[in-house]
């Protein structure tokens, strides 16, 4: 194994360790705090919606008209049905736009 390839393996291991630290770090921090202040609790409560929104909004704005249309349709489906149906209907929408209209 040459030195350059060994460097890549070290890099991957370092990335894995960094990732693992993020995955247990919050648990360690929060269990050290005996009482969670209400503001911290509201902040933690907001985490999932806040983080996941950042994966949705830019895709909607910069993903192109076809992706935006599929997401809108999926949103309407999602008000009533499961995520799997959102995916299916969204996928059908984008395929129809791409192959029939565009």
């Amino acid at each position: 194994m040459d030195a350059q390839h060994l460097d890549l393996l070290y890099l991957i291991v370092a990335a894995a360790v960094a990732t693992y630290v993020t995955r247990f770090g919050g648990y360690v921090l929060i269990t050290q705090l005996k009482n969670i202040p209400p503001r911290i609790e509201s902040a933690l409560n907001a985490v999932p919606a806040a983080v996941l929104t950042t994966l949705v909004a830019p895709a909607f704005v910069y993903g192109g008209m076809d992706v935006a249309a599929a997401m809108l349709v999926a949103f309407v489906i999602g008000l009533r049905f499961s995520t799997l149906r959102m995916l299916l209907v969204g996928w059908i929408t984008v395929m129809m736009i791409r192959h029939l209209i565009m």
């Binding site: 919606a49 993903g63 995520t83």
Partner: peptide, 26 residues
């Protein structure tokens, strides 16, 4: 059409939290 799946998936996750306090402003 694979590129559209992940944003829609995350959209579904966001919507699943819509009953939480202050969902809309956040």
């Amino acid at each position: 059409g694979l590129d559209v799946l992940l944003p829609i998936y995350f959209l579904g996750l966001v919507m699943s939290f819509r009953t939480r306090d202050r969902f809309l402003p956040i």
